[in-house]
Simulated assay, not measured.
Amino acid sequence: MAGAFDGFGQKAIPFLKALDFHQNREWFQENRDLFERELRDPFGDLVETLSERFAAAGMGLRGDRKKSLFRINRDVRFAKDKRPYNRHLSAILSPDGTKMEQGVLFVYIGLDRCFAGVAWWQPGPALLLAMRQAIATRPGEFRTLIATLKKAGLELDTEGCMKRTPRGFEHVAEADLAVAIRNRHFVVRHAIDPAGIHGPALVDELVDFTLRAKPLLDWGRAIEGKVPKD
């Protein structure tokens, strides 16, 4: 049942620690109630509370407890690491409420770290090409975006950046533009203090971050709107 987010349970992170130690279905089934009460159900509340806040702010991001949360079970079919469970739980809020859209808010509560990201993550070839072309042909617009994000305390993440300039962009000589064009993703992140996940103030924290990151969403959406649909 939906409810206002009041915080993750005090045993949310200890549960993940214990699950990581045991890593077996029997232990998980015995402790499923703890998982649901301390971690999964509060995460559903968080997603739906954020959806209400974003709707009021006209952010174009939404989700619900059924579609937005990723499973804690790992897909091990083609993985060398056969551990059955993740060390984290995560969720996405997107323009249509599914996990298939681009321009999203990603929230990750994990044993290793807690963070949120506003992301254009692994955009399809046509959209990624259009984003790179926008950087190359409208550098002033892109630099304004970067300056706006910097003023808000954010910067583009360089994870997964290509080592070489992609074909067709060898002519881009300015260092900042060349580095940006090598991105495979366009992402800004916000570190969440694990001690701060247990109260409702996390909602305000994530809304504030997403509002500060909105220029990245707007930039990508303007480009996406001109890319022909498959």
Rank of each mutant, 00 (worst) to 15 (best):
135 I>F: 08
152 A>S: 11
141 E>A: 10
169 F>E: 03
167 R>A: 02
175 A>I: 15
148 T>G: 08
161 C>L: 12
150 K>A: 15
180 A>I: 04
166 P>A: 13
180 A>K: 00
135 I>R: 01
145 L>R: 01
165 T>H: 00
177 L>T: 08
177 L>F: 13
154 L>P: 00
169 F>T: 05
153 G>F: 07
176 D>M: 08
153 G>S: 10
163 K>V: 10
140 G>H: 08
143 R>N: 12
156 L>V: 07
182 R>S: 06
164 R>S: 15
135 I>K: 01
172 V>C: 06
139 P>E: 13
173 A>I: 05
176 D>Y: 05
155 E>L: 09
183 N>T: 03
175 A>Q: 14
179 V>Y: 03
140 G>V: 10
163 K>S: 13
145 L>S: 03
151 K>D: 13
144 T>E: 15
168 G>Y: 00
139 P>A: 11
143 R>D: 12
152 A>C: 05
174 E>T: 11
178 A>T: 05
173 A>C: 05
179 V>P: 00
154 L>E: 04
169 F>N: 05
167 R>Q: 02
162 M>S: 10
176 D>H: 10
155 E>R: 13
146 I>Q: 11
183 N>F: 13
154 L>I: 08
151 K>S: 14
168 G>N: 02
139 P>D: 04
136 A>Q: 02
170 E>Q: 13
141 E>H: 13
175 A>T: 15
148 T>H: 05
160 G>E: 06
162 M>N: 06
141 E>G: 06
168 G>V: 00
159 E>Q: 15
